[in-house]
Design a protein around this nucleic acid. Sequence first.
DNA 1: CGAATCTTGTGGAACGTTCCAATAATTTGC
DNA 2: GCAAATTATTGGAACGTTCCACAAGATTCG
Lengths: 347, 347
Amino acid sequence: MNARETPSSATRVTMIDIARHAGVSKSTVSLVLQASPQVKAETREKVLSSIDKLGYVYNRGAANLRSARSNIVGMVINDLANPFFAELAVGIERVFHAAGYIPFIANTIENPRRQAEVLRSMSEHDIAGLIICPARGTRPADIAALSGLGFPTVLAMRRMGPGFSSVTPDNLRGARRATEHLIALGHRRIAFFGGYADMIAQNDRCGGWRAAMEAADLAIDPGWIIEGPPNRDCGASAIARVLDMDNAPTAALCFNDVVAFGVLSGLERRGLVAGKDFALVGFDDVAEARHTNPPLSTVHVDTASLGERAAHLVLRMIGGDTRPEEFVSDVDLVVRASSGGSIGRGE
Amino acid sequence: MNARETPSSATRVTMIDIARHAGVSKSTVSLVLQASPQVKAETREKVLSSIDKLGYVYNRGAANLRSARSNIVGMVINDLANPFFAELAVGIERVFHAAGYIPFIANTIENPRRQAEVLRSMSEHDIAGLIICPARGTRPADIAALSGLGFPTVLAMRRMGPGFSSVTPDNLRGARRATEHLIALGHRRIAFFGGYADMIAQNDRCGGWRAAMEAADLAIDPGWIIEGPPNRDCGASAIARVLDMDNAPTAALCFNDVVAFGVLSGLERRGLVAGKDFALVGFDDVAEARHTNPPLSTVHVDTASLGERAAHLVLRMIGGDTRPEEFVSDVDLVVRASSGGSIGRGE
DNA sequence: CGAATCTTGTGGAACGTTCCAATAATTTGC
DNA sequence: GCAAATTATTGGAACGTTCCACAAGATTCG
């Protein structure tokens, strides 16, 4: 039935078996598998057919050990359940796959200890390169230590200054434009929800918001800045908290879309509707943002291409060109219904 | 400054270097690293300190080669951009990480050729086990071939009968209950959107819909079944197509939430609102479902625990207990606004 | 036609571990 | 205080590749 010999015994088929079966040396088999041009077509056929007959499967671990070259790359994500990071991962994976690399993936859930564990595990596996979205609390020294490990590293969604490759959206500019949009709609009291001050991305986005507020001569109530994990719950509780203030804001910029989704449910729970009773803008423009109730105004990030860019950068560095590069991708404000028309005006 | 000697030269630190530095044999170093109880505490300390001083990093590839045991597992997902699969992946990754395994991840985007490529790549890396959500068009023989490769395989979201381990939600029952819900609301013409008939999951979900229709003695117009890829576009175009029929349905069950999201935008584009002008139910209950406009009625799947279950199953099989298990997880109908009140009643 | 060159193929060492059998060091029992 | 038993440690072979230096045969060329 099956042309292949079923290897019922536990021993695996190796290059040596192929060599014996094809009547050549193991070196020749190796050459064939590396598609070396210096083996005669006829010999190649013989070897290939033996490989097929015996059901041989290449052992990349052994090859890697001997050649000191690996086709494994690492991908450290801090929140894979956030659609933004999932989209990013998809872009990265696509490029790596096309280039013949296969990624380890790890989800740190913003936990530095977990991050340290997976980084160690990945180095033990001798990865050729790494893309990492550093968990909150990662110190620059932690990243710097990676460079001693012998593989190129690209930071995603977090810059670390010259000397480190990174790929980020233009957080500051995006946040600033989103805030200006709210101001133009007449809002004077605008809040910022989500993220922690010790996260660089939060710093930039919050900084953009602050810059816009200051440029418009608007005072900032410290109570309008609600820190928290970048998830739905954070958004829901932030909006609840802020609406009870004396000096309640009439609009908010969120650290990201997921936080904004939480705000949406928080508003709904109080019978309020975004875009009418409260103006809301997110950040990232994940696919779901256009389907929310109401559709979410947000800062569009070209996520997939950001991921692809990161992957290409790693590949370039693996290729020997190790010059670091800091790539900042352009962003766009996408106005949908959640930032609304004209409430809060005239105040 | 740094206690570690910076290995400026290209040669990596190996167990032999540690052995030399600690004044023991490489075997002893190996024993220490395997936490063998048969090495004296004092020796262990010596070795550990040398490891720390020289900045040694364990080479799992070499270990794996010699011991024929791997701590890599494979995870083949067909659409990581779908939040459902992302949630699934998170659950799986969590369990594997805790058990000391590290996953390769690959996104097949429903492409069998890509799937074949990644499976080959994973076998070449000698994975210890595999969880796969088979791409559309995967034949049972393709999966059966995997079992000859020497690692346990668990199917996720697709059964393949006894002999194969799998983990799936109760698709048939979920779809049936969702449809009964729509029927109870008075709908008589109910459509089914998304997926292809050659996908098992679609078969089951569509089958559940059909069963409920038949049980209620409702005729099915073949035009109500719109096949397509399980993504937003499919939902958007399906609703557009169906609303122009003579015999237009007043409600629809979608293959999954993402398709339902597309229907939501399709409806909006025509100025219709789900739950009022058309009743809509999704499947999966991804996190975003409660934030859509209007919130989506859907069949709740306990995704994370489904993923965890799959991972535990693989681990059990790696552990030597290779009895296959078909796990079917319970589902629940979650009624939100999109399935609405009472339109379409009375025909 | 002999040397040089090119083409094709080869055997053995090496990669960094684990495993095994054997030895060395220590403790126990009487 | 000596054999036996136990505990700690060790050297070398092995895992499945790639790499290197070399060799045998074919071809070119003046």
